[in-house]
Design a protein around this nucleic acid. Structure first.
Length: 890
RNA sequence: GGGGGUGUGGCGGAAUGGCAGACGCAGGGGAUUUAAAAUCCCCCGAUCAUUGAUCAUGCGGGUUCGACUCCCGCCACCCCCACCA
């Protein structure tokens, strides 16, 4: 009867229907605490990838575990459905972004249901629906009123291929995060959210998050905020008296300033040099610096370059007159756009001074007393201050900084200043498929925000995507032409749309009240569920989504819409899912079908079975490139005949090493896939996908199925009570069961260590397999139920079926997580290792609660121990009751 | 250059400062089978050896009766940021 394999196709569908029918995730059970579990919602690309599978499976285990623990759980799902891919598809194929998106959502929703993830689909929404994005406009207007929205001209990142600006956070290594083409800088008049206003609060908020968010995320955000404490110092242009303040973190080196560097874009450059003898030379140099490679990548790799302006500045601390240079390393966007240069104690200034032959003055004395003549670079360490008027002789330059800053402030030469690297959030995008920015341009009234009552500004649908270039909204007269809300004259609408990160900055709140059509959300619904108890997603959002969402929450708090400032109490970031990928020197990445295994001498191709074995070993990492060569084998590209290398890398379409979740679920069922992604590595580490591994999880499920089916005849009826005073196998089995409950619970609670939780369940299973035939029927029921319940968050369909087969009429998720009984888990005796100088020499069986003195006596009376220490001096006896004994002898 | 993280068998990984390698994958052997798959049982860090011993958690020190674990100094790899004044 138990010979059949577990029929996942039928059973998984059956239980999914059942959960939906009974509304498992919607069941609000009064008197229970609320728990809001949220997974980062996906962009509806049309297919789930393995990263989603890992992310949402972790989330689903949390949801189901919390249900079993007696919580009311909110587990919503929605769609981050604005964005470029839909628009690009429209340009390519002519299908409207709306239809493209809706079709994709349909497909992905099906895949999600099939995976068995529990979501309350009644709360589903897509951000590209006007019911959602109208609130983006509403918030924009509220924040505009509050002064948190600005339109300004600034150097922005421009992606020519996407034909839009990008936020700083969306530029990676000088390339567009989305399409990979190189990003250039240009000045544009754009909309911004004043993120930088919140720099200090965003940083301070980390105190609350520490311990609940991964350290790496907090570190990345702190770095991105880039707080640095220093001083502002009031330099002045000698020739014109114009102020030219600088920011410095090293006021202790002020007396060592030998020149001033100013950014090429600095307005003072043109203002000063216009009409001067240096005008032409400076202007050409500035042109060259600004134009020669505006790509962000080139900017970073450029060599130091500068030009003298012909002007000088006066150092307020000592009246020194120093030359003013334009330097390509000075950034207009940081500090004041001007840098005081101290070549003796700053490596960058050192290089510049050497190149242009500028003076170098030592003001910090290194311990060895050496000077710049003998240095090969700037001295950046600590030492005594020299050549610095009244501060000369201070023994430690860094300790002297506060006194110097105070002196600057007292004498009107400057003062303390905190600077942040965080810049404002560039909001506008020159694209169609996003939230229209609710603003009108009027020749008479200027920039006029759309009144709240006129919302929403609806994205028009009468667009031809296959014609023309640039933002398609410009080609929709019915959209562009409007009346000025203020004076009623003809006006033009803003055609820029919002960055999609606006959508994801507050979606976590909308899930609490998704159908509200008079407000983005009602306060009482927020109070019920928010902040999010557990948020789960990828670490790649550390400085983007997670920073914006925190900012938005703080801003909404300041608008009086929320009474908390942090949206996500706990954050968990899952690891990447990786798989081996093959790369040909000529054809780049290859699918494994295009890789041929050959014998090195003679280039003879291996038989299919032998080749498959080789691929398998490569996938398992049991065959390294060296190992392959040692066996006289080589990999060759089937297309070009060139050598092929392999590496373990993130599963991605571009590397051609994707694993299709649908295909896996066809073959093994959702539960097997769920079990596999959780069973090998801790979920925050890199996961390695192997075919053998999935198959192993499939075998595990079948072994378990047979075990449960074979036990049905022997198991006591539902509700049977385990008799007291168990002995032998029964006592052992029950002890193991309760020990397991304790350790499984600990593994889940202590940071989602599902791999160890699964290992603990396997141990219990192995033990049960060896003792089942002798077990008391009631004990057998207890252990089987513990196994089924503890596995149910991970492999829910399977667990439900077993639960039903065990005679239960209600869902396993209506039961409670098993109670750990310390009495049942208690050991009758423990084995105590006896160490001599740290090495185990003997073992004793003793009662678990034997007192230290008793244990020591037993050990010292043991004849074997006596023999081992005979003739030696007993220096120390260490007794850890219930654990071990160590004898230190000489 | 700065920050964060990780180093343990062929592989993924276990170990409140207390028996290193749980659990699983791969591998080897056996049973079953006409055969294969599946299943079940056994072995599986290294070296030496007869029961047993010695060495082993990236490297070097330290603290401790006792260190994968704590401290100091290196090395390697991964991720993030980077002309940030």
């Amino acid at each position: 009867m138990a010979d059949e394999e577990y029929n996942f196709t039928l059973l998984e569908q059956k239980w999914q229907r059942q959960w939906e029918k009974t509304g498992l995730v919607r069941a609000i059970r009064p008197g229970r605490p609320n728990f809001y579990s949220l997974n980062m919602y996906p962009y509806p690309s049309g297919v789930l990838h393995m990263g989603h599978v890992l992310n949402y499976t972790i989330g689903d285990v949390v949801v189901r575990y919390k249900i079993l623990r007696g919580y009311n759980v909110l587990s919503p799902m929605g769609w981050d459905s604005f964005g470029l891919p839909a628009e690009n598809a429209a340009i390519r194929t002519g299908v409207s972004p709306h239809d493209f998106t809706e079709n994709n959502i349909e497909r992905m929703r099906g895949q999600m249901r099939r995976a068995g993830w529990l979501y309350d689909w009644n709360r589903e929404f897509a951000t590209s629906h006007v019911d959602y994005y109208r609130w983006n406009q509403w918030f924009f207007l509220k924040l505009f009123e509050k002064g948190l929205v600005v339109k300004k001209t600034a150097p922005v990142n421009w992606c020519d291929s996407c034909q839009t600006v990008l936020a700083n956070e969306q530029v990676k290594d000088g390339e567009c995060e989305r399409c990979g083409s190189s990003v250039t800088q240009k000045d544009m008049n754009q909309w911004f959210y004043r993120l930088s206003e919140y720099a200090e609060r965003l940083l301070a908020g980390h105190d609350k998050l520490r311990g609940h968010w991964p350290d790496a995320v907090l570190a990345m955000q702190a770095e991105w905020i880039g707080k640095s404490v220093g001083a502002e110092v009031e330099f002045r242009v000698r020739e014109t008296g114009e102020p030219l303040p600088v920011f410095t973190t090293r006021p202790d080196t002020l007396w060592g300033v030998t020149f001033m560097s100013i950014a090429p874009e600095h307005p003072l450059v043109e203002k000063l040099t216009r009409g001067s003898p240096y005008e032409r030379e400076v202007a050409t140099a500035v042109q060259r610096m600004r134009n020669l490679g505006t790509s962000v990548k080139e900017l970073a790799e450029r060599e130091k370059e500068g030009v003298f302006t012909g002007f000088h500045v006066i150092n307020p601390v000592n009246g020194a007159e120093i030359p003013l240079w334009v330097a390509n390393f000075a950034l207009m966007s940081y500090g004041t756009g001007a840098v005081m240069s101290v070549p003796a104690h700053d490596q960058r200034d050192w290089e510049f001074a050497k190149k242009y032959n500028l003076p170098i003055i030592k003001v910090i004395d290194p311990p060895d007393g050496s000077g710049p003549e003998s240095w090969t670079g700037a001295y950046v360490g600590s030492g005594a201050i020299v050549n610095s008027d009244q501060f000369s002789g201070q023994p430690d330059n860094f300790q002297a900084i506060p006194a110097i800053v105070d002196w600057l402030a007292d004498n009107g030469k400057g003062g303390k200043r905190v600077n942040y690297r965080l810049r404002d959030w560039l909001l506008s995008r020159q694209r169609y498929w996003g939230t229209p920015i609710p603003v009108v341009y009027c020749d008479t009234c200027g920039i006029v925000p759309v009144p709240l009552k006129d919302l929403p500004v609806v994205l028009p649908t009468d667009i031809d995507f296959t014609q023309g270039q640039g933002n398609p909204l410009l080609r929709s007269p019915s959209f562009v032409n409007c009346k000025c809300p203020s004076c009623g004259k003809p006006a033009k609408r803003e055609t820029d749309t919002m960055d999609t990160f606006v959508d994801s900055s507050w979606y976590q709140f909308r899930f609490a009240d998704p159908h509200n059509d008079s407000l983005p959300f009602a306060g009482e619904k927020i109070a019920e569920w928010l902040p999010v108890s557990q948020y789960i997603g990828g670490i790649e959002h550390a400085t983007m989504h997670l920073m914006y969402a925190r900012f938005f929450t703080m801003a909404l708090h300041d608008l009086g819409l929320l009474d908390f400032e942090e949206p996500f109490e706990r954050l968990f970031c899952q690891g990447m899912v990786c798989k081996v990928a093959y790369r040909c020197e000529v054809c780049k990445w290859l699918p494994s079908e295009d890789v041929m295994v050959v014998q090195q001498d003679g280039k003879r191709e291996l038989e299919p079975e032998a080749a498959e074995a080789v691929f398998k070993r490569i996938e398992n990492q049991s065959l390294t490139p060296d190992g392959l060569a040692a066996e006289g084998l080589a990999l060759i590209c089937r297309r070009s005949g060139d050598p092929v290398r392999f590496e373990m890398t993130k599963i991605s379409k571009s590397k051609l090493n994707i694993v299709d979740p649908d295909a896996m679920m066809d073959r093994y069922g959702a539960d097997t896939v769920r079990l596999y992604v959780l069973s090998d590595s801790p979920p925050d580490r890199m996961q390695i996908w192997t075919e053998d591994g999935v198959n192993g999880s499939w075998r595990t499920i079948n072994r378990l199925w047979r075990l449960v089916m074979d036990s049905l005849a022997k198991v006591a009826p539902v509700g049977s009570v385990v008799p007291p005073d168990l002995t032998g196998v029964d006592r052992e089995l029950r002890r193991k069961t309760h020990q397991s409950i304790g350790r499984i619970t600990e593994a889940i609670e202590g940071g989602y260590q599902f791999n160890t939780a699964i290992a603990r369940i396997n141990e219990l299973l192995n033990f049960l397999r060896s003792s089942r035939d002798k077990a008391n029927p009631a004990v057998l029921r207890e252990v089987l139920e513990v196994i089924v319940i503890t596995l149910s968050p991970i492999i829910p369909h399977f667990a439900e079926e077993c639960w039903a087969k065990l005679g239960h009429l209600e869902s396993v998720f209506l039961h409670t997580w098993p109670e750990f009984d310390p009495e049942a888990a208690r050991l009758d005796s423990v084995e105590i290792p006896v160490q001599i100088n740290g090495k185990v020499r003997e073992r004793l069986q003793v009662p678990p609660d034997l007192a230290a003195a008793e244990l020591e006596r037993l050990v010292l009376e043991n004849t074997k121990v006596q023999g081992l220490i005979a003739g030696k001096t007993l220096v120390k006896v260490v007794v850890v009751p219930g654990r071990m004994v160590n004898l230190a002898v000489r």
